[in-house]
């Protein structure tokens, strides 16, 4: 993609330089040749359509390949992915680990090296889920599920956030993204399970109330199908709803 950028930048710089040069060279107070009726040239025409067309042809091919290679829906190579279900709330994120049976608020941990599939939905207005250090964003919308595949290759801590304006608490709607080595990840799960409370209708109702900059919170138990039921609650068919069909 850098070549693509380089190619365009070169053309842009040439255009700027030529514009400024022509502007100076053919100034009225100068002595340069004046050809007031010169208004067409096949050679120039071929170049002016040809060069942009060529660059766009090269870029277009690249777009086709890269868009498929970097499709956020495409599972990443490696071990079978860890599934994390993320629910956008006003103005925080709830993460559910169905395999581990835990849930967290405003903190998500990824085992280093293992692909992760995020399944996204929203309880509120449209959100856009992104962990900039790891990859791009995908919208989270009520009543449907969207997906994003990510993988952390080095341990570390970064910030993820909602990128789509969704009201008063939007600016502070961030969460911690922890990339943890296998062992530490397991410890983290254990900690969440042992210190956390239960995620159920009552605690979820409380959590759903709009709030800003919530502290990290853990839930040690999560009902199976909690995520699918939240989607269904907003009219989604099943957890295969949303854009799945169009895929």
């Amino acid at each position: 993609m850098l070549q693509a950028f380089g190619l365009m930048l070169a053309l842009v710089l040439v255009v700027i330089a030529a514009t400024l040069f022509f502007a100076w060279r053919y100034r009225a107070t100068g002595k340069a040749l004046h050809q007031p009726d010169w208004d067409r040239s096949l050679a120039v025409e071929i170049v002016t359509w040809g060069i942009p067309a060529l660059i766009i042809a090269i870029l277009g091919t690249m777009v086709w390949n890269k868009t498929h290679a970097l499709d956020p829906y495409k599972p990443l190579p490696g071990a079978p992915p860890l599934v994390v279900q993320a629910i956008a709330l006003d103005w925080k994120w709830l993460f559910i680990y169905p395999e581990q049976g835990i849930a967290t608020v405003n903190e998500v941990a990824l085992p280093v090296g293992r692909p992760v599939t995020f399944r996204l939905t929203s309880e509120v207005a449209m959100n856009s889920f992104m962990i900039p250090a790891l990859g791009g964003q995908i919208y989270a919308m009520a009543g449907m599920e969207t997906r994003l595949n990510l993988r952390a290759d080095t341990p570390g801590r970064s910030e993820g956030r909602n990128m789509q304006f969704s009201g008063g608490g939007f600016a502070a709607q961030t969460f911690a993204a922890l990339a943890l080595p296998e062992q530490e990840f397991d410890d983290w799960v254990t900690k969440a399970r042992s210190t956390g409370t239960a995620l159920n209708a009552a605690s979820f109702a409380k959590l759903s109330k709009p709030s800003v900059a919530d502290p990290v919170r853990y839930y040690g138990t999560v009902p199976v199908d909690f995520f699918a039921k939240r989607i269904a609650a907003h009219g989604g068919m099943s957890h295969h709803s949303g854009n799945e069909a169009g895929h």
Partner: peptide, 29 residues
């Protein structure tokens, strides 16, 4: 994405055409 980029072609042509209008003109600023 590709459809979007294709629009850059006629747009680029326009910029070149303005450039070549200046070429061998007698420009008043």
């Amino acid at each position: 994405g590709i459809a979007t980029m294709i629009i850059a072609v006629p747009t680029g042509v326009k910029v070149f055409d303005w450039m070549f209008t200046m070429y061998r003109g007698r420009i008043r600023f």
